[in-house]
């Protein structure tokens, strides 16, 4: 009986740690960012801008799988490019939106990304 309850406790411990502690590690983006920003990037940008993406061009321009490894200046430049692209409506690309209209950024999402880029850049500048 004691053995069983011990096993049960262990199981609960594993479930709890899965549900809370390691939550962040499950994310495909290692670079720290607010959850709402991460949700937008994961759903609207990540598919083309990660290590396993098919297109070489998009991956070379911006890769969220390796963003953490960049130098501070490269990060600032990358963030600034994100802002520019989404504000000017260049990203997500029009061609892709023809096939996947649901991938378009809403004005609120664009605003969220822009505000994040601003605050994140300032934080990086102070480092």
């Amino acid at each position: 009986m004691r053995k069983f309850s011990l096993l049960f406790m262990l199981l609960i411990a594993v479930v709890v740690s899965k549900a809370t502690g390691t939550n962040d590690d499950d994310s495909k983006i290692s670079y720290p960012m607010p959850t709402d920003v991460k949700m937008v990037i994961e759903s609207k940008c990540f598919n083309c801008h990660n290590d396993e993406a098919r297109g070489d061009k998009s991956k070379k321009a911006l890769n969220f799988s390796t963003f953490s490894d960049l130098s501070t200046i490269q990060k600032i430049a990358g963030l600034n490019d994100i802002k520019k692209e989404v504000v000017e409506g260049e990203m997500p690309p029009k061609k892709m939106l023809e096939r996947h209209p649901e991938a378009a950024l809403t004005p609120e999402e664009t605003q969220l990304l822009v505000e994040w880029v601003k605050s994140e850049s300032q934080a990086l500048l102070k480092k």
Binding site: I73, I76, D81, K84
Partner: peptide, 10 residues
């Protein structure tokens, strides 16, 4: 200045 940094990176 931030745009300049980006452009120089390019």
């Amino acid at each position: 200045p931030l745009d300049k940094i980006s452009l120089l990176e390019d």
